[in-house]
Write a protein that binds this DNA or RNA. Structure first.
Length: 479
RNA sequence: CGGGGCGUAGCGCAGUCUGGUUAGCGCACCUGCUUUGGGAGCAGGGGGUCGAAGGUUCGAAUCCUUUCGCCCCGACCA
């Protein structure tokens, strides 16, 4: 149906890129791996930000800003951390026309500089906990960039907290994972599986890493957000110490957690179809497009536009924000106007023409199903918000059903290999291998351990090593 | 970084093998008229340093060298 979008079945990657282009979410920048987030895409990011930021504030966090440039030596203070990040760091060697004495790293993440600051700020148990979040850009020089999913520079938030006890830090780690899960499911309509990362997939420098894993419509997995329990690793590296109530010095326990513009990629690849973008209503910057349609200019000016403006104002006030637009692209034919909103993923379209005025109704069309209903004008304020909610639920349920259809359990490695190869999707099994075992599985099947789902505490026999007490683990090919 | 493909108008492509007037086509864009409820029709028009730099040649989109970028598949990652 869409003539400017490659179909998903023909070429999934191209479909993804076509969606971004047609919906004007982003464009390539002159520097390899970098992207320009265009106004439509940025509006979506702002909407995502707002939901997350509100949730961070509700859980007691405050925002701050730490610098882009980090002394090279900072990165080296935590052994695993430097090993993990050094290969993908951009380094500033010259400034002010001179070579710098110490190279500066463009932050790939901010644990080190924040750790440094925390060590200055924290002396007593009374200074804890520190609960700070920052919205920032970071840079990771990726070999194979992909719009939104993996760009050299990307936008995200990174929360960094310090606590007096292990228990409290662990509680924070899991609390923020739950915040991610809630927003992803309730706002972005993404069914996610919260779980713990295996040893091989852990954040460099973390004691435990937790993740929200989600399935894209090509059955591949995407890590949509992570929360790390850093133990005392960074506290020891950066001397984050405090005097406890007994007068003894102790290292603090820290956490970090982040979610990025990759979420936009997740939204695209979870909900959209061959006609273009489909946005979950609760996060869509434009929720309703109202289109006055007539061949009669006089009719448009005197009746349809004022009526459209009235409906728009009514709905905005009902929805609590500027979430509707009145389409005034009268130089286009109706079909083109429909498509312009459809391809941008606007959840609902209201058509307002002579027919509607005569019958006192408006034609309302759902983006997700294409279903059309005629709704009495005086019932719009009531029905539109309900319809938006129905769309949210439908999108979520559809994605969840898709994930369930494409998730299976296996108990042996041979069965595992054929499941990955033949059906794809998520494969659950019991696993107790090392990170070398994980590498081997990746080499042989292309699949990686995505997480050990939190909802299951069940243990069994490892599919690879035969060890007992193995945790239930989800594997898949991933982005 | 390895393997493969591709760079010609905003987008999609032909032309390249076999060098030769003024570089074409479709869509998009602009103007006008007719149209208008799921991607309109006719007429006219604008838009190109043929990815870049060197070289060969009387002459290069076309041949040679180098280089940059994009896409796909791997290795590496949010």
């Amino acid at each position: 149906m869409a003539r400017n979008i490659t179909s998903r079945t023909e070429d999934y990657s191209q479909w993804y890129l076509d969606i971004i282009k047609v919906a004007e979410l982003a464009d390539y920048a002159p520097v390899r791996g970098c992207m320009v987030i265009r106004p439509t895409g940025y509006a979506l990011w702002e909407s995502i930000q707002r939901h997350f930021d509100d949730a961070f504030k509700e859980t007691g966090h405050v925002n701050a800003y730490f610098p882009l440039l980090i002394p090279n030596s900072f990165l080296e203070k935590e052994a695993e951390h430097v090993e993990g990040f050094a290969p993908e760091c951009a380094v500033v060697t010259h400034a002010g026309g001179e070579e710098l004495e110490e190279p500066l790293i463009v932050r790939p993440t901010s644990e080190t500089v924040i750790g440094h600051m925390y060590s200055k700020w924290i002396q007593s148990w009374r200074d804890l906990p520190i609960l700070i979040n920052q919205w920032a850009n970071v840079m990771r020089w990726e070999k194979r960039p992909r719009l939104f999913l993996r760009t050299s520079e990307f936008l995200w938030q990174e929360g960094h907290t310090a606590h007096a006890t292990r228990e409290e830090a662990m509680e924070e780690t899991l609390k923020m994972l739950e915040v991610y899960r809630r927003i992803m499911t309730d706002i972005l309509a993404l069914p996610v599986i919260p779980g713990e990362k295996t040893e091989g997939e852990r954040f460099p420098g973390a004691a435990n890493t937790y993740t929200c894993e989600t399935m894209m419509s090509d059955k591949k997995a995407l890590q949509a957000g992570t929360s790390h329990f850093l133990g005392q690793n960074f506290a020891k590296a950066f001397e984050i110490q405090f005097q406890n109530q007994d007068g003894n010095l102790e290292y603090a326990w820290t956490t970090s957690w982040g979610a990025s513009t990759r979420l936009i990629g997740a939204i695209i690849m979870t909900h959209s179809d061959d006609d273009g973008l489909i946005l979950p209503p609760r996060v869509a910057p434009v929720k309703v497009a109202i289109l006055p349609i007539s061949t009669d200019d006089e009719m448009i000016a005197s009746t349809l536009l004022p009526k459209a403006a009235e409906i728009s104002a009514q709905l905005d006030s009902r929805l609590g924000g500027r979430f509707t637009v009145v389409d005034k692209q009268f130089h286009l034919r109706p079909g083109d106007r429909f498509f312009s909103h459809l391809q941008r993923g606007v959840p609902l379209r209201i058509e307002l023409g002579e027919k509607e005025l005569a019958s006192g109704t408006a034609r309302v069309v759902r983006r997700d199903t294409g279903a059309k209903v005629d709704i009495p004008l005086d019932a719009l304020a009531e029905r539109i918000p309900q319809l938006l909610e129905e769309i949210h639920t439908a999108l979520y349920e559809k994605a969840l059903a898709f994930r369930k259809e494409n998730t299976r359990f296996v108990s042996g490695y041979e069965e595992f290999k054929s499941a990955i190869e033949e059906q794809g999707g998520f494969v659950e099994t019991f696993f107790a291998g090392t990170s070398d075992d994980e590498k081997k599985i990746k080499e042989e099947t292309g699949a990686t351990a995505r997480c050990m789902p939190l909802e299951s505490s069940e243990t069994g026999v490892c599919m690879l090593t035969g060890k007992t007490g193995a945790r239930r683990t989800l594997f898949a090919k991933a982005y």
